[in-house]
Simulated scan of single mutants.
Amino acid sequence: MTAKADPRPDWEVFLRALLDTLDAHMPAEERAVLLRAIGAQMAALSPIPPEDTLSGLEARINERLAEPRWGTVSIALDSSGPALVLTHETAPHLGTGQDSAGGWMGPVLEGLHAGWIAAQPGAEPDIQTNLVSAEHDRFVLRYGV
């Protein structure tokens, strides 16, 4: 008898246990702070080389996202102010007991993209990335003042 292949990624059980444990032991805002810090640490561990153009930065970020199958991002200038709009699509979706929509991914992406962009030439280190909207596996973020 052969074992049936599990279609879930290898990390899913660990990640679900981690997120459920965070939900059980941390208020939502503290959990978001921690997840943002984890995203920033991910960016530090997998840095993006300096890029002179948005299209170059977008390409390098998408290269980093491809290997772990974390989706794709498109970057555009925000016409309403000095900011970038990042649309991150097909992000991993994993709901938890208290977060069936998988919204935990928003703070992770805030930290990840802020870390990558802050390391680029001319970037202001104090500018934050903020989640604008989240729909299943599509997150829109704004990097700017």
Results as ranks from 00 to 15, higher is better:
P107V: 03
S79R: 15
S133G: 06
I75Y: 08
G95A: 11
A119R: 11
I117M: 08
G81D: 00
P125E: 01
L84E: 05
Q98D: 09
A91Q: 03
A83Y: 02
W116K: 09
L94G: 01
I75S: 09
I75Q: 09
P92N: 03
A76I: 12
A119Y: 04
T87H: 07
G95N: 09
G102E: 04
L94H: 02
I117R: 03
Q120C: 02
A118M: 00
E89W: 04
G111R: 00
H93E: 07
V132Y: 10
A114Q: 14
E110M: 00
Q98H: 08
A119T: 04
S79A: 15
P92I: 03
D126C: 11
P121Y: 13
L94S: 01
G95F: 06
V132E: 14
G103P: 00
S80L: 03
W104I: 05
L112F: 14
G106N: 10
Q120W: 01
A118Y: 00
A134R: 14
S100E: 08
L109C: 10
N130T: 11
V85R: 11
V108I: 13
T96H: 03
T96A: 03
A118S: 11
S74K: 14
S79T: 15
G122T: 06
A119H: 05
A101V: 06
L109G: 01
L77G: 12
S100T: 07
S79G: 15
G81P: 05
P92K: 01
D126A: 15
Q120A: 03
G97M: 08
H113S: 01
A83M: 05
S100P: 07
V132G: 12
S133Q: 11
T87P: 03
A76D: 14
P107M: 01
I75G: 11
G97F: 09
S80I: 02
A123T: 09
L94T: 04
P107D: 02
E124Y: 08
I117V: 11
G103E: 07
